[in-house]
């Protein structure tokens, strides 16, 4: 399902001394089946932007269209919209409340008034999607580990079968192994279900690895919007916005500065490793001396 945003403005606490314009004239269009990473400094407006997409925040001006549903129009069926656009908040495990994992995941489908069989099927499917084995079904979500709790919470949103999945910092606060697992699962989910995915993060490494397109937010506006390779080639612009380029890009930049030519499209460790190995092999074959 596609997303069309045009001329979006949003002001926090209008008319008080704390007034702040969080979004300034944001226009975006995201096609069906895209995997978009949204990055930006704290307070750049990324979380505000995604909360507009399922109608949790009402813009001061501008319009949003999800598929053929106009969110900003009066009388839009919010329940229907929220079923189409699944939003996973930051630290989603803080919203768990039921006695068992099963009941918690079924909260969303239940709100959609589905039949018991359908709910049951969706819960099993969602648990399977996030890699939770069925033996957890009757455990209390509060006795699980941090990573497992988060997977329960993500499953709670997936069980609503959304067409668009939005994740706000899904890997924040997890250890490297948990992080790796969540990211892999999101990627697999995207490939399997053909959803449109919006992935909000401030970790360049994560976004670089899984997104097909990157939107950089800065002070409430869209600063950059391009393919990862193009975005990460603008290291200086990113640093000016208080963002870091992935470490591997940093390394490639440094090597390039020392006169070794590299392609712009290298921004993941795997790709860099392969390229460098290839170059070394070539060098040995031609008998040149290894200077590095």
């Amino acid at each position: 399902m596609s997303i069309e945003i045009s001329g979006l403005n949003y002001i926090y606490m209008e008319g008080s001394p704390f007034e702040k314009q969080a979004l300034k004239d944001v226009s975006l269009s995201i096609a069906d089946g895209e995997f978009v990473g949204i990055i930006g400094h704290t307070g750049s407006g990324k979380s505000t932007l995604i909360q507009h997409l399922n109608g949790l925040l009402k813009p001061n001006s501008g319009s949003i269209k999800i598929g053929d549903l106009v969110v900003t129009e009066k009388g839009t069926d919010m329940k229907k919209l929220r079923q189409k656009v699944g939003l996973v908040f930051q630290y989603p495990e803080h919203q768990l409340f039921e006695e068992t994992v099963y009941k918690d995941i079924s909260y969303g489908p239940k709100n959609m008034n589905l039949s018991q069989e359908e709910i049951d099927e969706r819960v099993r499917e969602a648990m399977n999607c996030v890699g939770l084995s069925e033996k957890y079904m009757n455990r209390s979500p509060f006795e699980l580990s941090g990573g497992q709790k988060r997977r329960v919470a993500i499953a709670g949103v997936l069980a609503m079968n959304p067409d668009i999945l939005i994740l706000d910092e899904p890997a924040a606060g997890l250890d490297p192994a948990g992080r790796e697992e969540i990211l892999t699962q999101i990627r697999a989910l995207y490939l399997e279900r053909k959803m449109t995915v919006l992935f909000v993060s401030h970790s360049m490494e994560d976004v670089a690895r899984i997104a097909g397109r990157i939107i950089v937010m800065n002070e409430g506006t869209v600063a950059l919007d391009d393919k990862p390779a193009e975005i990460f080639s603008q290291a200086d612009a990113l640093r000016k916005m208080g963002l870091d380029v992935p470490q591997i890009t940093e390394l490639i930049c440094e090597l390039r500065r020392r006169g070794i030519s590299f392609d712009n499209s290298i921004y993941t460790i795997e790709k860099a490793k392969a390229t460098i190995q290839l170059m070394l092999a070539k060098k040995q074959n031609t008998g040149g001396d290894a200077t590095c």
Partner: peptide, 26 residues
């Protein structure tokens, strides 16, 4: 939390009083 539960289809504003009180648990 309200926003997160609304995103999962929670409804805090309509229904009978008992329904609304029940809706507060999440």
């Amino acid at each position: 939390i309200m926003k997160a539960q609304k995103a999962r289809g929670a409804d805090f504003e309509s229904g009978s009083l008992i329904r609304r009180v029940k809706a507060l648990a999440p």
